[in-house]
Each structure stands twice: as structure tokens, then as C-alpha cells.
């Protein structure tokens, strides 16, 4: 495996975007970074800057306004990148799927690589999803 690929697997910098969730998944994403779960031991850093992110973590269903923001974040993020949709809403719209201002999961807006189930998803699941995303990142590398 190439050195860069190996480094990539150990250094996922995440960009978290809330597309319209109820907050449950968002606080669980933050909780995944805090002492009990400490995702940083896997090199996860919440970087907050799309230009430097590797993994886009999205929560919540998409609505027209957040979809535009999400789309632009996705476009700003340089390759290789993977998208993790956290929670039932991000996957399908969840309980909000039939709400008037919601048009479904985030995969209607950007391609999603990993779906993390749950309402809200647990931090363990989120970390699991990130690892799965890394595996996809490796596949994209052809490694």
C-alpha cells in the first residue's frame, strides 16, 4: 500500500454539517470526540474547514436551503473524500420524511458512501461508520 494511502486511513479529518436534524445525532457526533469515546485516538479531528476535510459527516434530512449549503460544502472539499450520513433522517428523511419542507435523505443532494442508522445514532455506531468510510476511502484509492 502506498504511504499516502496508509496515512490517509489514519488521519480522517471530519467536517460536520447539520442538514436539518433534531440535534440528537449532532451531539452524539461531538460526544464521539469526548473522553468516553475519544475518536481522536483514531486520528479523527473535527476540522470545520471543508478545504481540509476528508470525511463529510452529515446529519438530518435535506431541505432546499440546507441542501444548497451542503452541496457547496461538498464541492469545496477536495478529493479524495467520503460522505457519512448519520442517523435515520440523513439516510431517508426519518420521521420527517413527509414533512412539507423536507425532500428526503441527504443522498438526494450528494452521493453518500456510508449510512449510519439510528435515531439518534450512538457514538459507537458513528465511529464504526467513520471506519467503514475509511475503508471506502481505501477502495477509492484502489488500495
Amino acid at each position: 500500500m502506498r504511504l499516502v494511502t496508509r496515512a490517509r486511513l489514519k488521519s480522517p479529518w471530519i467536517l460536520h454539517f447539520d442538514c436539518g436534524s433534531c440535534n440528537g445525532c449532532d451531539i452524539e457526533i461531538l460526544a464521539a470526540l469526548t473522553p468516553k469515546f475519544d475518536a481522536e485516538r483514531l486520528g479523527v479531528v473535527n476540522i470545520g474547514d471543508p478545504k481540509q476535510a476528508d470525511v463529510i459527516v452529515v446529519t438530518g434530512p435535506a431541505n432546499p436551503r440546507s441542501a444548497r449549503a451542503l452541496r457547496s460544502l461538498y464541492e469545496q472539499t477536495p478529493d479524495p473524500k467520503v460522505v457519512v450520513a448519520v442517523g435515520a433522517c440523513a439516510a431517508t428523511g426519518g420521521v420527517f420524511r413527509n414533512c412539507e419542507n423536507v425532500f428526503g435523505g441527504v443522498d438526494k443532494v450528494i452521493p453518500v458512501d456510508v449510512y449510519v442508522p439510528g435515531c439518534a445514532a450512538r457514538p459507537e455506531q458513528i465511529i464504526d461508520g467513520l471506519l467503514l468510510a475509511l475503508r471506502k476511502l481505501k477502495e477509492k484509492d484502489g488500495g
Binding site: G20, N23, G60, P61, N63, F96, C99
Partner: peptide
């Protein structure tokens, strides 16, 4: 408006019993 989902509207369309779980998800905190 980035998170507006239209829960108030949805509450009018649902069976009133189902709204409990919908209202619960107005906010996760």
C-alpha cells in the same frame, strides 16, 4: 431556515397520538 422541516404542519396531518414522537424530535436535546 436551514433546519425548517415543517413539523407544525405535519402535526396537523398526523394522527394526534403519533405526534408525541414527532414533537419529541423537534429538538434532540
Amino acid at each position: 431556515g436551514y433546519i425548517h422541516r415543517g413539523i407544525e404542519k405535519a402535526c396537523e396531518l398526523n394522527d394526534y397520538k403519533k405526534n408525541v414522537s414527532l414533537c419529541e424530535r423537534v429538538c434532540g436535546i
